[in-house]
Design a binder for these strands. Structure first.
Lengths: 128, 128
DNA sequence: CGGCATCCGGGAGGATACTG
DNA sequence: CAGTATCCTCCCGGATGCCG
C-alpha cells in the first residue's frame, strides 16, 4: 500500500469523526479545561442531549476526551481533553480562525454567485 | 452581539461546509492545481456524480473553488482553488497531518475502550 | 464529457418519557 | 444531574435516465 493511500485512509477516518458538526464544537468547548455535562450542553447550544452524549462517547472511545465521574449526591460528571485531544485542538482552532477571517469573503462570494446565477424574475423579461 | 457569539456563528457556518465528508477531500484533491471533472471524480473515489457536482457548486458559491469552462468539442471543465481556497487548504492539511500521526493512538484507544465496556460473553461469568 | 431531474431507501438526529 | 430507551421524521446521498 502506498503512502498516498494510507494518507487518504487516515483522512477519511478523521473526517468521519469531525464529519458530524458537533465534534468540533465540543472539542473547542473543552479547550479551556474540565466541563460538566450540563454546562457543556449550554456551551454548545443547539445540541440535543442525545447527540451530546453520543458524540462524547465517540470522543471518549477515540481517546480524545476523558470522562470522570464523581459519585457525589447529585452525580457529577466532568469531561476533559486528553493529551491527544489537546493536540487535535490546534488544527481545529486554525480552522475556526480561518472561518472567522473569511466570513465576509464567503458571504460576499455567495451573494455574487446568487446574483449571477439567479436572475430573480426580471421585469424586462418579455420574451417569455 | 458579542465577539464570542460571532465567533461561534462563523464556526458553525464553516462546520456546516466541511460537515459533509466530501468538501475536505475535494479541496485537498485540488491542492496541486486545476483538475477536470472526471479526473476529480476518480481522485476522490467513492463520491457519486451527484455529490461531486453538488459539493463543487457549494464550494464555487462560497468562493473556495473556481469553475472554468472551455467550449471545445467535448466540453472541458476545470476546477481550481481560489486564493481563499488555498488558504483554507492549510488548516485542512494540518488536520490531515494530525489524522495520520494519531491513527495508531485512536485505534489503540478504541480497542481499549471496547474491551473495558464490552465484556464479551466471558465464560467465567457465572454470577448471572 | 459534464452535467441536471427524479425517485427512493436508510440513517442521522430531534422529542419525549423514564431511571439511578 | 446525567444519562438510557423509544419513536418518528426529515433529508442526505445513491441509482438511474436524459440533455447540450
Amino acid at each position: 500500500m502506498s503512502a498516498a493511500h494510507r494518507r487518504e485512509e487516515g483522512t477519511r477516518h478523521i473526517l468521519d469523526r469531525i464529519g458530524d458538526r458537533w465534534t468540533v464544537l465540543i472539542v473547542v468547548a473543552l479547550r479551556d479545561g474540565s466541563v460538566r455535562f450540563s454546562e457543556l450542553r449550554r456551551r454548545v447550544e443547539g445540541i440535543s442531549q442525545k447527540m451530546l452524549t453520543q458524540t462524547l462517547r465517540g470522543l471518549e472511545r477515540d481517546g480524545i476526551v476523558r470522562r470522570t465521574v464523581y459519585p457525589e449526591v447529585p452525580v457529577r460528571v466532568e469531561y476533559t481533553l486528553t493529551e491527544a485531544g489537546r493536540t487535535l485542538c490546534e488544527p481545529l482552532s486554525a480552522l475556526e480562525e480561518w472561518s472567522i477571517a473569511h466570513l465576509g469573503d464567503v458571504s460576499a462570494a455567495q451573494e455574487s454567485y446568487d446574483r449571477a446565477h439567479r436572475p430573480p424574475a426580471d421585469s424586462t423579461d418579455r420574451d417569455k
